[in-house]
């Protein structure tokens, strides 16, 4: 029997026996909990498709060992809001019709959630700086920036 850990995921508590303590958080979320996001993009912490909030901080679940997230509060896209009660960031991205394939959106949305929380009046340069490093292959960048500005310029 491996190490025992507990994760709070989108408000629910889950216990795991970690036979392999190196297993990245991503595989617990996807394979053990059956969540449809985050996504596997690179497994190298280079793209952001696997991003979740760990105690409020956007982190790459593809490289974060699940054991390092023991007792943490984890929020995925699905935990941000619902169609009836969307998170403002979700609503802004819907209103802006951001994204094409959308496979990358975990990184952008989770980073946006942290950004508008920490810098509600973020400038264009601060928005670009916060997002730098995230990948979007379809070229959604313009609508992503506009979506965030719906919040930062209204705040």
């Amino acid at each position: 029997m491996g190490k025992h850990i507990t994760l709070q995921v989108d408000g629910s508590s889950h216990d795991f026996d970690m036979a392999d303590p190196t297993t990245p958080l991503l595989y617990l979320l996807r394979d053990d909990l059956g969540l449809n996001n985050p996504h596997f993009g690179c497994g190298l912490s280079q793209c952001g498709a696997c991003t979740v909030l760990v105690n409020g901080t956007p982190m790459r679940s593809c490289v974060l060992p699940a054991t390092a997230a023991n007792d943490a509060n984890i929020t995925t896209l699905a935990g941000l809001g619902t169609p009836e009660h969307p998170h403002p960031v979700q609503q802004a991205f819907i209103d802006e019709q951001a994204f094409f394939c959308g496979y990358c959106m975990n990184g952008w949305v989770m980073t946006a959630v942290a950004l508008v929380r920490d810098k509600p009046h973020a400038t264009d340069a601060e928005i670009r700086h916060a997002f730098s490093g995230l990948k979007c292959r379809c070229g959604s960048h313009m609508s992503i920036i506009r979506a965030v500005k719906r919040l930062t310029e209204a705040a």
Partner: peptide, 12 residues
């Protein structure tokens, strides 16, 4: 599909 994806409801 954009909203479905944003709420994690889209099955890729």
């Amino acid at each position: 599909d954009i909203a479905d994806k944003l709420f994690g409801n889209e099955v890729f």
